[in-house]
Design a protein around this nucleic acid. Sequence first.
DNA 1: GAATATATTCAACGACCGTTGAATCCGTCA
DNA 2: TGACGGATTCAACGGTCGTTGAATATATTC
Lengths: 236, 236
Amino acid sequence: MKKKTTDHRPAKERILDAAEQLFARRGFYGVSLRDITQAAGVDVALVSYHFGGKRELFTAVFERRAEVLNRERLELLEEVRRAALPAAPSLEAIANAFFEPLLERSARGGPGWKSYFALVAYVNNSPEFGPVMMTRHFDPLVERFIAVLREALPGCPAREVYWGYQFLTGALTLTFAETGRLDKLSGGLCRSSDLDSVRERLAPYVAAGFRALSARATAAASRTPVRAARKARRRS
Amino acid sequence: MKKKTTDHRPAKERILDAAEQLFARRGFYGVSLRDITQAAGVDVALVSYHFGGKRELFTAVFERRAEVLNRERLELLEEVRRAALPAAPSLEAIANAFFEPLLERSARGGPGWKSYFALVAYVNNSPEFGPVMMTRHFDPLVERFIAVLREALPGCPAREVYWGYQFLTGALTLTFAETGRLDKLSGGLCRSSDLDSVRERLAPYVAAGFRALSARATAAASRTPVRAARKARRRS
DNA sequence: GAATATATTCAACGACCGTTGAATCCGTCA
DNA sequence: TGACGGATTCAACGGTCGTTGAATATATTC
């Protein structure tokens, strides 16, 4: 059984789809090209022909949806920004612009998108692939978001914003990994696939977190004279 | 070059140490038994002899430090609880008891512990290993923490606490993955290996998040009559 | 010190890995 | 029709994988 039905979509895309699903489930090394091409109903050699090799296929899968996604997120961020002018947008609105396009597509964009975000979660947590691939494809976007976050947090040191972003990404990443652990843990009370629940809760959660970080920093600064603070910063 | 110096530690432990480091870096499938045994200065066949196989070695690595760790975390939680009696402990104190033993050992417990937490991060995000292994070794602990969190959040629906815990775990997990991405992103302003920075910030962040979730839930409840709320809950 | 149990080494197995080059199919254009 | 070029198939390569069984070394017991 090679194909369920005669499938006239180009083989290149079928390979990408199958690879997306399998890489997301078992990581780069947990999947063989034969697994992928068999799932795609295609000969093994076509991977080398179309992509060059296994690693190139992996990055091709990762890149395919990154561009369109980030463009949409940036546009949404600017829209949020314009709507709030001349004030800075709320932290909730910024956080929402950051993950709303992701949640929307993961929930209603079809199984390919769902797999894709699980793959991004895998890459983001991987010490091997994370630094290279995330930096290359997502850093410009992230830096723009952090800049706007800083506008919304006047007087807050940059370090705090970066840490807040780190925690935000972590929470989001685990959500996309779709391990189903929260479902088991809560006895069915929460379903991690229910991304509308995430949508409602994540923005308030991280916005409050950002405010707490900002408050903590200013409290610490007022407790410490400037010179001592400079020295402490150098020490840490 | 098999060993740097003559090493009289039992081979079984040397294998565990090497496997811990390599599994953490490249995952289960990204490491071969020959990689591990070569790093341990030991013959390949010893893995089958001592552990039975590759999968059994993987779970042995995972289990080795889990017990002692969770016992300490539970004791700390009960201590925090007793100290606050007859009131419930603060959210900050509970969150702190959850991750303080982890951060402490990751920062000052030696390279083995650091690798171990990166491995837990890998497992926690893995759709393949996460549900099985995390559930088996960490669920009793987590349920106890959630129970105490609920005491500290009177009137807060259980769902909200579970979601808050999910976000907390995600933030913690990404921190332990040690991808070094935050370092690059912040231009050296933050070092993700600086776990003291995490220690200071994570508790206020997630405590504020929990309070926001709780407030959001009670606000939503007061907006909705009881019967409609019941229906809405059944729908979702 | 012989016997026994445990630990380690060695060589090899069959299976699967990613990749390759030649052969074949098929639609396009001359 | 025939030549051509991209897409696909097929068979096979060398290498590495996890695992195994027999042989050897080391420690323990009588």
